[in-house]
Simulated assay, not measured.
Amino acid sequence: MPTRPSRESLPYRDCVGIAVFNQDGNVFIGRRKAGDDPEQSAQQGAPWQMPQGGIDKGEDPLRAALRELHEETNISAVSLLAEAPEWIYYDLPDDMLGVVLKGKYRGQRQRWFAFAFTGKDSEIDVESPGGGKHKAEFDAWRWEKLTRTPGLIVPFKKDAYDKVVEAFADIPQRFTNV
């Protein structure tokens, strides 16, 4: 068995996370497709998450968020509500170091954005996002209360989701008080 790299020797992968709120103040969550990716396999017990993805070299984080959102959900009808005030980190469990995220990273450093969904649910297509141009990462989706998301995510990302809930805690009330 190959030796795993030390956690300290690996950097964090720069990524974005996206919280899309509907008119009822609930957020979009997708169910991760089952597959042979070790990170996905680890998530079988808690396969729901909000969209997220890598920031390409030289890419603006907001542009990356909009790109990733479309690539994973087909959603493009959104308007920016907020950006989390700081980067939110999560670490991979020891048994995933050197295995997932191409073995190059200790976890992710995520820039989170909150958007209002301004389209119709029929725009959402997780099975064939971007008209089939992008590989499906989710096989189902639903709207959920933001405060419930930390209990639906894979356990090693729970602390990060707690910070997302804290950063965007006021947003659901913006919709219900209209």
Rank of each mutant, 00 (worst) to 15 (best):
M1V: 04
P2K: 15
E8G: 10
S9W: 13
S9F: 10
L10Q: 06
L10N: 13
Y12E: 07
R13V: 07
R13L: 13
C15S: 06
V16R: 02
A19W: 00
A19T: 00
V20R: 08
N26W: 01
V27P: 00
V27F: 02
G30N: 02
R32Q: 10
K33F: 04
K33Y: 03
G35T: 14
D37I: 00
S41L: 13
A42D: 03
Q44M: 13
G45S: 13
A46G: 10
P47K: 10
P47W: 12
P51K: 11
Q52C: 02
G53K: 06
G53E: 00
I55R: 01
K57M: 13
K57R: 12
K57A: 09
G58I: 06
E59V: 05
D60E: 03
D60R: 00
P61I: 06
A64K: 02
A64P: 01
A65F: 13
R67P: 08
R67I: 05
R67Q: 05
L69M: 09
L69G: 12
L69V: 10
H70Y: 12
E71N: 15
N74W: 11
I75Y: 05
V78F: 00
L80T: 14
L80Y: 08
E83L: 08
E83H: 15
I88T: 01
Y89P: 13
L92T: 08
P93C: 09
D95Y: 10
M96W: 00
L97W: 04
V99W: 02
L101N: 00
K104H: 00
K104S: 03
Y105G: 03
G107A: 14
G107N: 11
Q108I: 06
Q108Y: 00
R109F: 09
Q110D: 15
R111S: 05
R111W: 13
W112C: 12
F115V: 07
F115Q: 08
T118Q: 01
D121N: 07
S122A: 09
E123T: 10
E123L: 07
I124H: 02
D125W: 00
D125V: 02
E127W: 05
G131C: 08
G131N: 08
G132Y: 11
H134I: 15
H134N: 15
K135W: 11
A136E: 00
E137F: 15
F138Y: 14
D139H: 11
D139Y: 09
K145H: 12
K145G: 12
L146Y: 05
T147V: 01
T147F: 01
T149N: 00
T149L: 08
G151K: 13
I153Q: 11
I153G: 11
V154Y: 04
Y161S: 14
V164C: 12
V164M: 11
E166F: 14
A169D: 10
D170N: 03
Q173K: 03
R174G: 07
